[in-house]
Design a protein around this nucleic acid. Structure first.
Lengths: 104, 104
DNA sequence: GCATCATATCAATTATTTTTGATTTGAGGT
DNA sequence: ACCTCAAATCAAAAATAATTGATATGATGC
């Protein structure tokens, strides 16, 4: 089992790799089949598969198997959650924040 | 020189590591000196320094040297930029999106 | 100048991630 | 059942990132 920190880190793994950002850029224009991504990115099949797994496990991408093919698209839910998480991580924690005026 | 993708990946490197998320969590409650972070995280000094470098280079954290000490805080500007970037990366590209009704 | 303290950098090791050809799985088609 | 094709998984190698003691830097005080 993962700690909350590890769980959160996993979400951002989707975005901290150049290849995965390229994949996401292609998916911004709509759902794509793995074979299309392989062709457009000129990437070995096993390599794409590796990155798609990370993207799916982060929740940012959804996969939709259909017969022999697998289609991938950006998950609106996952993206919204990532945004919310990023806000939470970077927003000052008012309650715990030090004050010049009220040091206990 | 880095590509745009590599540049963007660098921003999210700040968030894809458990230790760095722990550091950010501490900084949410306000600016902290390196020595405080070392103590609270029970981490070797060189190890903290390594992660602070990554956090600063991603733009998410600002450092403020003061005499012998270095103070770190979450950068509002960097955080806002990261949020904007994350939105851009995960938002459908309407112009390029396929349509069922108007395939050229 | 010298000693001290805080932090940064170095360098060697260890750990993790990425890459890729080969193999497996699983859906269709004949 | 067998063949084919798409994708996932495996496994070994290569590349990258993280860890940490040792050393360097740089500010401060004596």
């Amino acid at each position: 089992m993962l700690t909350a920190y590890e769980e959160h880190a996993k979400v951002f793994k989707a975005f901290c790799d150049e290849k995965r950002l390229r994949i996401l850029e292609l998916l911004r224009s709509g759902e794509k089949c793995a074979c299309v991504l392989i062709e457009q990115l000129d990437m070995p099949q096993s390599s794409l598969s590796y990155h798609m797994k990370i993207l799916c496990e982060s929740g940012i991408v959804d996969s939709r198997p259909e017969g022999k093919w697998t289609h991938y698209k950006i998950s609106e839910k996952g993206s919204d959650e990532a945004l919310t998480l990023l806000k939470a991580i970077t927003t000052p924690n008012a309650a715990a924040e030090e004050s010049f005026y009220c040091k206990t």
